[in-house]
Simulated assay, not measured.
Amino acid sequence: MTTDENKAIDAFERLGLTSYEAKVFIALHRLGSGTARDVARIADVPRSQVYSVAESLADRGLLEVQQSSPIRYRPVSLEEARATLEARFERERERAFDYVDAVKSASTGQEAREDIWTIRGRDRVADRVVDLCRGADERIVFGTRLPELVTDSIKTTLEQQVTAGRTVVVVSRTDDVRDRLGALEGVTVESPPGHRVDDQRSGRIVLVDDDSILLSVVDDDGSETAIWSANSLFASVLIQLVEASDEVRS
């Protein structure tokens, strides 16, 4: 069995077929049609197992059975098989997510509104920054000292929020950051009133309205870790503390 065939079998398994079902289905497409003996000859499936596997594939709508002696099998076209598996995937997906949605709706309402969340990895932190900024109703404060932490998605989101009428303030002591985001029409750029010249760990800070915050640090290896909280009392209090300390002004 080739590497490509192994990968195809693995893919069929992820689509819900068993290993034997995938092997029989592939073998029948090689043959065009055939008996259990024909299939067993070219597929790594015992002949005694081919019958039950073929019956299962027939129940799934992936092959047809000719009631002859011996019984012959013929696979449906690739287009029909693809449509059948896609339809099944959609049904299973809807069944799974409908159940989760029902469980969520039936919860006690004790959602983690006061929770502080931790995320790791620059891409994940950037995605969270974008999500928080998109949820702004009035104001966004975004700060960083590192130009590489100003992703295109963050820049686009800030620009869109300005257009939507939100107040956007960028705080940075770094010229590259100030120039890049300051070029966006409607964005106000400010320098932090005070900072440590030896700061090599701060990453990003995001304040959204008065109830959402994200703070990140950059590790020695360049990785980023952030804590964030949204629509919570904790976030409101922390924002007040940050602004009162004059580290960020809006």
Rank of each mutant, 00 (worst) to 15 (best):
L85D: 01
A87H: 12
R88F: 11
F97W: 15
F97D: 06
Y99H: 00
Y99A: 03
V100G: 13
D101Y: 02
A102W: 10
K104H: 07
S105D: 07
A106E: 15
S107T: 12
Q110T: 12
Q110A: 08
E111A: 02
A112E: 11
D115K: 05
D115E: 13
I116W: 13
I116P: 15
I116S: 12
T118G: 04
I119C: 09
I119L: 11
I119S: 14
R120Y: 11
G121S: 06
G121M: 04
R122I: 01
V125N: 11
A126V: 13
A126N: 09
V129P: 15
V129C: 15
V130H: 14
V130S: 07
V130P: 15
D131N: 15
R134A: 12
D137W: 09
E138Y: 14
I140L: 01
G143V: 01
G143L: 00
G143Y: 11
R145C: 09
L146W: 06
E148D: 15
L149E: 15
V150G: 01
T151I: 01
T151A: 04
D152C: 06
D152Q: 05
S153I: 00
K155N: 13
T156E: 00
T157I: 00
T157E: 05
E159G: 09
E159S: 06
Q161F: 00
T163C: 02
A164P: 13
G165K: 05
R166Q: 03
V169D: 09
V171T: 06
S172F: 15
R173A: 05
D176H: 03
V177D: 04
D179P: 12
R180C: 11
G182L: 00
A183F: 07
A183T: 07
L184Y: 11
G186I: 05
V187R: 09
T188Q: 09
S191L: 06
P192Y: 11
P193W: 00
H195A: 08
V197Q: 12
D198H: 12
D198N: 13
Q200S: 03
R201Q: 02
S202E: 12
S202T: 10
G203D: 08
R204N: 02
R204P: 10
I205F: 04
I205P: 02
L207W: 11
V208C: 04
V208G: 10
D209K: 09
S212R: 10
I213R: 02
L214Y: 14
L214D: 09
L215T: 02
L215S: 00
V217H: 02
G222S: 10
S223H: 12
